[in-house]
């Protein structure tokens, strides 16, 4: 008799496979809009994974901020720049010859370690965690993680200055 995998594992496998396929599609698509839409797929499946893990606030933020606001901006920028299909770069064979084997080796090593050390596939368990609502997340952000939360604003400020410095028009 084939052991029936429980529903948690099944749900995880479906979503994780979808996320990885969409991620591959982001980098393999030749057209920028198709890549952007694949990215929406990655964000969406991640959001559902968060939701199943009990991080409902994170899931909502993931949908609203990433899949909603940021992706809309991405698509707008792509349309404004009117970028068409990507032209193949030179010296790609080198990248294929070195990059793909090392990527496979890296993934192989990681999956080997995980399969060897954590053979218990049922360690995926949804619903055990219940502290993912806005209140617990907010409490942590404003107490234990106050400093990283506030300092991130400096990071955003630097990004804005950087965009301005690198992209402004010369006024003379």
């Amino acid at each position: 008799m084939i052991p029936m995998p429980n529903l948690d594992v099944l749900g995880f496998l479906v979503l994780a496979t979808f996320a990885v396929l969409c991620g591959l599609s982001v980098i393999l698509q030749k057209h920028a809009v198709a890549s952007a839409l694949s990215l929406v797929g990655v964000m969406g499946s991640l959001a559902v994974l968060y939701l199943m893990l009990g991080a409902e606030f994170l899931a909502a933020v993931q949908m609203i901020v990433y899949a909603g606001a940021i992706m809309v901006l991405f698509v707008f920028v792509i349309m404004l720049l009117n970028s068409g299909s990507e032209r193949p770069a030179k010296a790609r064979y080198f990248a294929y010859l070195v990059g793909i084997p090392s990527l496979l080796a890296f993934l192989g090593v990681i999956s080997f370690f995980i399969l060897k050390e954590l053979p218990n596939t049922s360690s995926v368990q949804f619903g055990a965690f219940t502290q993912g609502g806005p209140a617990p997340v907010g409490r942590l952000l404003f107490t234990q993680y106050l400093l990283p939360f506030e300092v991130t604003s400096l990071l955003v400020l630097i990004a804005i200055i950087g965009a301005m410095v690198l992209a402004k028009k010369e006024i003379d």
Binding site: V151, L154, L155, I158, A159, I161, G162, V165, L166
Partner: peptide
């Protein structure tokens, strides 16, 4: 990241 991103710019 703060240090690196400012350095990139």
């Amino acid at each position: 990241e703060i240090s690196s991103i400012s350095s990139y710019i």
